[in-house]
Write a protein that binds this DNA or RNA. Structure first.
Lengths: 112, 112
DNA sequence: CGAGAATATTGCTTGCCAGCAATATTCCCA
DNA sequence: TGGGAATATTGCTGGCAAGCAATATTCTCG
């Protein structure tokens, strides 16, 4: 399953959001989600296979941790689109400049 | 259908990629994709409903244009994750420093 | 060893989505 | 006005994914 497909599921995005603030056990995640435990485990398996989380055993528990590097693929796909909305902002700025015409351009560099 | 779900379909991402280099008619897109015309029209409908493309009639033709602003939602979701892979690079740098230095006390807190 | 906790796996059902063919619609032009 | 081009819509099917209950697995501890 592609990274994009994995992210299409809202509960999986929610799991990633939760892991952003720290590692969690399966029980933690089940408590935070409107899902039964087997369903959460299934989502975690997909997230693992997509390289978006990693797991470390701790006795019977499994501690899940975010692996945000897996999201760089999405970020890379998105990259060439940024110039398009940046372009839009430039046009907006230009129009504002035309209205005010005070010349103090708070210009900033692009990303990338 | 959520923006993420719309992007989960590879052919839809391909359509967006094609539109990045210029406006296209449905016929253009059908020629460039391994799909029948009704299927392409269906994808275009979903892309339109998600605000990722816009359409302008030209006689019997419909010219589709990218609306990249619709992707800002994805970009915004991704934003808080960027610091994580930046953090990873920092950790790598720290480790390299530790090797060159002497290595004592190179231990660092992982997550927050 | 036995019980219980934590998690994964299995088996099943349901709903939805991608795909196509066929048809409808809309427009231009002869 | 009729025909053909371009696109959308409809109706259908197959496959897959999400959900749960039940069960299996793995570990700790008394």
């Amino acid at each position: 399953m592609s990274t994009f497909a994995v992210l299409a599921e809202p509960n999986r995005r929610l799991i990633l959001d939760l892991l952003r603030s720290g590692d969690r056990t399966v029980t933690d995640l089940v408590a935070a989600l409107p899902l039964a435990q087997p369903t959460v485990s299934k989502h975690l398996k997909l997230l693992r296979e997509a390289g978006l989380v990693q797991v470390q055993p701790d006795a019977q528990r499994r501690v899940y941790r975010l692996r945000a590097e897996g999201l760089q693929e999405v970020d890379a796909w998105l990259a060439p689109y940024r110039r398009f909305w940046a372009q839009r902002l430039d046009a907006l700025e230009a129009r504002l400049d035309a209205i005010e015409d005070d010349g103090s351009g708070a210009d900033q560099g692009e990303q990338i």
